[in-house]
């Protein structure tokens, strides 16, 4: 395997969790279908918040999520104050 191949393998294995806030006018079903077509797995849907948690190894800045108001990567630095 070439050096580039090893790099791809490394990037692909780095799954990240994101949160997308659904735009008004979109249903979760529609969003789920869109994400599936993009090869992205839905982890959780929060109906009261209209937020979708999804997991992907893709670089999300390169994807046009027109059905989300915003997409944020999971943080792990919340702590007691």
């Amino acid at each position: 395997m070439s050096g580039r191949g090893w790099y791809r393998l490394f990037v692909k294995s780095k799954m990240k969790t994101y949160f997308g806030v659904i735009q008004n006018g979109w249903s979760f079903k529609e969003v789920e279908t869109k994400l599936t077509r993009l090869g992205i797995r839905v982890d959780t849907y929060y109906p009261k918040l209209k937020i979708v948690k999804f997991v992907t190894d893709r670089i999300i800045s390169q994807i046009d999520f027109d059905f989300f108001i915003t997409v944020e990567e999971e943080k792990d630095d919340f702590a007691i104050q």
Binding site: T44, P47, L49, I51, K53, E74, K75, D76, F78, A79
Partner: peptide
């Protein structure tokens, strides 16, 4: 419970709990 016994937590646990 959204923070572990070490006092730390993630966006996931907080959003899960708020929902």
């Amino acid at each position: 419970k959204v923070l572990g016994n070490n006092g730390k937590g993630t966006t996931s646990s907080i959003i899960d709990a708020i929902d």
